[in-house]
């Protein structure tokens, strides 16, 4: 896992790339908590989102959940293979299970996210 990866309280991760883009996914905890995933809807390339806005939706056997943008920016790439291979999210949530790449609008957004220890503490505090 890249050292620079950070997390939103809503369980998305964001990883700055050397290209300046930010790769976004959802955490292993969120994937496991949702159980069997059956459908995912991702945004179109070119869409502008603000941090905290819905970026897409994911459906499991029991629940539909929004996926929120951890940072503001423009969607420049979408993992189009993912909705057809949702098992990838369980196998490799921080790698091939990425959702989108954003061109960030404000570098300060990353600073507002949780680092790994803080996110781990958040997960431990969740009702079981």
């Amino acid at each position: 896992m890249a050292a620079a990866m950070k997390f939103a309280k809503s369980h998305e991760w964001a990883r700055p790339e050397e290209s300046g883009l930010v790769t976004v996914g959802i955490s292993a905890y969120a994937v496991e908590a949702l159980t069997d995933l059956v459908f995912m809807q991702l945004p179109e390339v070119g869409r502008h989102v603000k941090a905290g806005e819905s970026l897409g939706e994911i459906e499991s056997v029991k629940a539909v959940s929004d996926v929120y943008a951890p940072v503001s920016g423009e969607v420049v790439e979408v993992n189009t293979a993912l909705p057809g291979a949702l098992e990838t999210l369980g196998r490799d949530p921080y790698g091939s299970g990425w959702l989108v790449r954003l061109r960030p609008a404000d570098a300060a957004d990353m600073a507002a996210l949780l680092d790994q220890p803080a996110y781990d503490a958040l997960v431990k505090s969740q009702p079981h």
Binding site: A33, L34, T35
Partner: peptide, 12 residues
């Protein structure tokens, strides 16, 4: 934040 607000199976 409710005791049943965590994993989906809790409230279910």
């Amino acid at each position: 934040t409710h005791p049943w607000g965590g994993r989906p199976q809790l409230l279910y």
